[in-house]
Design a protein around this nucleic acid. Structure first.
Lengths: 107, 107
DNA sequence: GCAATATTTAACAAATATGTTAAATACAAG
DNA sequence: CTTGTATTTAACATATTTGTTAAATATTGC
């Protein structure tokens, strides 16, 4: 529960969200490559990566002097699971909305 | 895209996450009822509700002097859609993890 | 060991977020 | 139209976040 909030916090920042999307599409990448794709300094990216790591969204692997980052799939699954858990609620709501819109068209 | 970040921001706070969960399980509720369930002041809750509304997570309906809040299902669906869009990535990752763990058991 | 490279930590400034209490607003009821 | 109730806005203090530059740390290759 509280863990989900931490995950949302981690993704609630443009830079971090972008880093995560990059890592998902490009796979494991060294910190330096991630820095190169963002308009902020290395230390800033480094701190964002630390926040993502502490939230369990990414993991780090050491290779010589480089730090290779990748997304932990479990974190994405946790979000997915939550939306599924609440699905009964929002699915019903959307269906009701759709019905209303359909009825409007038949006017 | 940027809209998702706003949604995550809205849910990245204990109070707001709790408010949203309350509204999902209990349905539409007046601001006062929500205040009663939280250990913070009315104005604080009011401002959180405003943030949720600006992020499109909740909507407000006026009934006399009361403001009735409810969750907008579209916001939940947006999150769900994102996890589905990235599913190929994290599902594969989890399967690989599971395989690794299975192999470990057979050692 | 020494220089070069990759990355993080430290120190600090500026912006943002969050909570509080007091005041404002809006409607309802007598 | 005055009082009471529900809620939001204003003003303000404090804490957290985010970015910057400078320094520290660790590893590689001569």
């Amino acid at each position: 529960m509280t863990n989900l909030i931490t995950t949302f916090s981690a993704l609630a920042d443009e830079t971090r969200f972008y880093l995560v999307e990059q890592l998902m599409t490009q796979g494991e990448l060294p910190a330096g490559d991630l820095v190169a794709q963002r308009p902020i300094s290395g230390p800033a990216v480094s701190r964002h990566l630390k926040i993502l790591r502490q939230a369990g969204v990414v993991q780090q692997r050491i290779d010589g002097t480089r730090r290779l980052y990748s997304v932990r799939p479990e974190s994405l699954k946790a979000i997915s699971d939550w939306t599924i858990e609440k699905r009964a609620f929002w699915q019903a709501g959307l269906d009701r909305l759709e019905t209303l819109l359909d009825e409007e068209q038949n006017t």
